[in-house]
Write a protein that binds this DNA or RNA. Structure first.
Lengths: 133, 133
DNA sequence: TCGAACCTTCACACCCATGTCAAGGTCAAG
DNA sequence: CTTGACCTTGACATGGGTGTGAAGGTTCGA
C-alpha cells in the first residue's frame, strides 16, 4: 500500500506519516520509483500512534515503548534494566494520567446530569447517549 | 499568597502561573504594589490544571470545562445546549483517551512481567512496586 | 502525447507550552 | 541607604506536532 492509501485508511495526513517515519515510529519499503510501500499491519500501528499522541505521549516515548506494546513473550531475552526502568516509569505515568482523566470525566458526567435534571425536555441533540459506556 | 508561594506549593513556575492567568484558567487579585495575590483554593486548581495539561488537554478546553469541574448543582440554571454539547464531546474524548491509555498500560504491564519472568534475580531497582496500584 | 493524480524532498510557517532574560519596581533587613 | 529577594511586563527562543506550498518525478487513462 502506498502513502495515500495508508493516509485514507488511518485518517492521518501523508505529511504526518512521513513525520512518524522520520521519528522512527514506522518504516516503509521503497518501490523502484522511490515511492513508499507500507505493510498492512501499519494501519493498526498508526492508529495506536495516534491514540498515544492524542493522550499526550510524545513521539520519543512512543518510539521507546512501541516495540513492547504488541505482544509480550517475544524477544524478552535481553532484560536490559535501563529499558525496564523506562517501561516502569511510563506505566506509572499512564496510571496517573488515567486517574486524572477518570476523575475529571466523572465530574463532567455529574455536571451534565445536573444540567439535564435542571432542564428536562430540552437538550438531547440526536443520537447521543448519556450512558457511561 | 503571592506568586512565589503558589509556585512553591504547586511546583509550577511563576512564568506558567502568569500564562495560565492569561489563558483565563486562574485569576488573581492585585495588591497595592501591583503584586498578584492568590486565594488558597487556587493551589488545588493549579494541580488540576497541571493534571489535565499532562493528559494532553489544551488550555482552551481546560478553560471551558474547568467551571463545571468543581461541583455540580451549583449554577446549573442556564442549561445552554452549546455548553452541554461541548461537555459531552469532552466527556467522550476523555473516555476514549482512558481506554487507549489503559490498553497500552496493560500491554506495558504484561511486557514488564514477561521481562521479570525471563530474568529473575536481577532488576528490581530499589523501592518500586510492580503492583498495578 | 497530454493531463490528472499520485509521489518525492525541502523549506517555511504556525500554534502551543515553556524557558529565559532584560529593565525596572517594592520591601524588609542589615 | 544599600543589598537581596521578591515582584512586574515584555520580548525573544525553542521544541513538538502540524499545515502548506514549491519544484519536480511517475503512472495511467483519454
Amino acid at each position: 500500500m502506498r502513502i495515500g492509501d495508508l493516509s485514507h485508511r488511518t485518517g492521518v495526513s501523508p505529511r504526518m506519516l512521513r513525520y512518524y517515519e522520520e521519528q522512527g515510529l514506522i518504516t516503509a519499503r521503497r518501490l523502484d520509483n522511490g515511492f513508499r510501500e507500507y505493510d498492512d499491519y501499519l494501519v493498526d500501528r498508526v492508529h495506536k500512534i495516534r491514540g498515544l499522541l492524542d493522550a499526550g505521549i510524545p513521539t520519543r516515548i512512543i518510539g521507546n515503548i512501541l516495540p513492547c506494546l504488541h505482544q509480550a513473550e517475544i524477544v524478552v531475552e535481553d532484560a536490559d534494566p535501563q529499558l525496564r526502568a523506562m517501561l516502569v516509569e511510563q506505566r506509572d505515568k499512564m496510571t496517573e494520567r488515567i486517574a486524572v482523566l477518570e476523575q475529571n470525566r466523572d465530574a463532567l458526567i455529574r455536571y451534565i446530569d445536573a444540567m439535564d435534571r435542571a432542564a428536562p425536555e430540552s437538550n438531547r441533540s440526536s443520537g447521543e447517549t448519556t450512558a457511561v459506556a
